[in-house]
Write a protein that binds this DNA or RNA. Structure first.
Lengths: 357, 357
DNA sequence: TTTAGCACTCGATATGTTTAAGTGCTAATT
DNA sequence: AATTAGCACTTAAACATATCGAGTGCTAAA
């Protein structure tokens, strides 16, 4: 899969311009209102009059870092401005030892079960950031198998339980054309488990071994099964519902996010809720991050990432120690997001999550 | 558990009053604006002047079926008015054969896996109603067991897979103080499965049998286990997160609901989203319905069900044929909900869902 | 019993006015 | 050459006021 994951390169700004840009961005973070030249003159160490600052602001606007919502208003950062801030101006907050311990505690008490952990992480991300946390579950294809078990539910109905080496389980129940008794099923699963123990393979590998071995015999149990049990997991169905374990998006509570002043506008709030409840675009961007293997910052503007226009999404991939499980996490907030607070949270959480799955 | 599930009894209204009330409610459904006497005079079969209708409206208001948002406005139904409409005035729509087939098709293509079905049902309820569908997963305590399997994940870490007779599975992974090899674990699960086959019991029943049998031996595997495997399922944890399979709420997409005119007000929309994402109150009301065993209608007003004030929640219980799995489904919408459309959907779906789980 | 007529209420809408914040430009100052 | 004081100008927001229209309750007449 090919993806563009590079970081853009910004032309340098003079020290003075950088300081004024920083002032504008931090001022905007604080007040949620356009920042004027007078405010900068009074609230930064620069000993300059508002008139001088106006001159520099005009050139910062020319260069695309800030803009005016209307003629006689102050300035607001553009997407380009935020990016410059994140890459060069921002001083990331440190997560205190106490906070780290709190996170560990809240995740430790979770059932040691992937779905439970991921759901919990999404809630935790919401809580810590006061925005909305999202978690994309890892794709199970490629994960080593530990155990497979067939259980007869009732006549011609079988449940397959697939246990991966990392403790994740997947259940698939399906119908077969002729009934098979439980002890025969147990024989079949024993045989599969023998292969798994010897060859240390993933689902796809197992499929190959089985289809080679059982090539001729059409009536064979495994050949009936293979179409069912090895069917691709983790994709959306014909109705666009994401029903499978994999590729599943966990979304934390979004209550706090709604209190941000940008969502006092009715259209904004609807766009936010629809974007989150639609899941499609969020999953797309989180998938992108998973493939990039590094933290990504999506700032939704008219020109770029317009699918989340007006929203920011900070994401990072996570991976289990053996690199078998890959997913990503993220935080959705307004453009005017507290990046210096949120980014360390994402960094810490992606690493921590990698360590416990 | 004791719950009040009775239906209130309304004093009778004259034929004319009923017809005017019906006109007001249907008019309000159509326009989302307070309905005046002139509108009723012109849009119903009644050959009455607006002045006469005003007299009757005054008495309907006196009796609490309608109210005026302000002095010179038309009338809006109260919660009491809606209830009277639902119980006595409404003519429920029929679900066409075609729609039924569509529902069946969309649920048939789902993986035959409880979680998948329930998630799908919540989406389907949203789609069909254009409001927000919710589904409360059944409580598994009381469901007969089919199979238990212990799998050694790694040193001192065990995964227990519990399969219920209805095909639902539950996974619990936990730590044990001393390591046990897989073949020994298999012996243990075989023993349990023997008991399950003979006694046909639920988790609680199994626990009793085991603890009686293994009374003396403290070092015993089962006694180590019992605290873990039989720990209560389906409740929220110390942080209020609902992480377990049971008692889990599935919420369908709420995009359509946001388009209703009642949610053009910013506070309304926030209340809706917070109520849904909070889950607690929705779960409470769905749980109430499950215990009542009949369809329930919650109309959120200042006086009653104020936790969903301004919202309506139509719910119905569902149960598997053998009555082992009990849960409930619901649709959340504005007070001005299209009850005659939504109620048959809820009725059909609760019955249909009971049939396929 | 019904209704025409009327005075009255009150939100919604439109219009005009004022205010405050902020700008760009120019000429004076450092 | 860089900086700044001063000023005319722009605009959104806040406020005040007037008008309109939908709807009411009441009374007296049909």
């Amino acid at each position: 899969m090919e993806e563009k994951c590079e970081k853009p390169n910004y032309n340098n700004l003079s020290e003075r311009s950088r300081e004024i840009l920083l002032g504008i961005i931090e001022g905007y973070f604080g007040t949620a209102n356009p920042v004027g030249s007078k405010f900068i003159a009074e609230n930064t160490g620069l000993n300059l009059s508002s008139a001088s600052i106006r001159n520099i602001m005009a050139s910062l606007e020319e260069a695309g870092y800030i803009y005016q919502p209307h003629f006689s208003a102050g300035r607001i950062p553009t997407a380009k401005g935020y990016k410059f801030y994140i890459d060069g101006l921002m001083i990331a907050e440190k997560i205190s030892q106490k906070e780290k311990e709190n996170i560990e505690k809240r995740l430790a008490s979770a059932n040691r079960n992937l779905s439970g952990i991921l759901s919990r992480v999404s809630i935790l991300l919401s809580d810590l950031s006061h925005y909305a946390g999202v978690v994309l579950a890892p794709d199970m294809s490629g994960a080593f198998l530990l155990h497979i078990e067939f259980i007869r539910i009732k006549e011609k109905n079988i449940l397959a339980i697939i246990v991966f080496a990392n403790g994740v389980t997947e259940n698939k129940s399906f119908y077969i054309p002729k009934d098979i008794k439980q002890n025969e099923l147990t024989r079949y699963s024993n045989k599969l488990n023998g292969i798994i123990e010897n060859k240390n393979c993933d689902l796809d590998g197992l499929k190959k071994i089985i289809t080679e071995e059982m090539y001729s015999d059409k009536e064979n149990f495994y050949s009936i099964l293979s179409s069912e049990i090895f069917s691709p997991v983790g994709n959306t169905d014909d109705y666009g519902d994401c029903i499978n374990y994999d590729n599943r998006l966990y979304v934390g509570p979004e209550g706090d996010l709604l209190e941000e002043p940008e969502f006092s506008n009715n259209e904004q709030i609807k766009f936010l809720i629809k974007t989150i409840s639609d899941k499609k675009n969020i999953i797309k961007l989180l998938g992108h991050t998973k493939n990039c293997k590094t933290k990504q910052i999506f700032i939704g503007s008219e020109e770029e990432w317009s699918e989340i226009s007006g929203l920011s999404l900070i994401t990072a991939p996570y991976a289990s120690e053996n690199n078998m499980l890959n997913g990503s996490i993220g935080i959705i907030g307004p453009l005017r997001m507290n990046y210096s607070h949120v980014i360390p949270i994402i960094d810490f959480m992606s690493e921590f999550l990698g360590g416990i799955i």
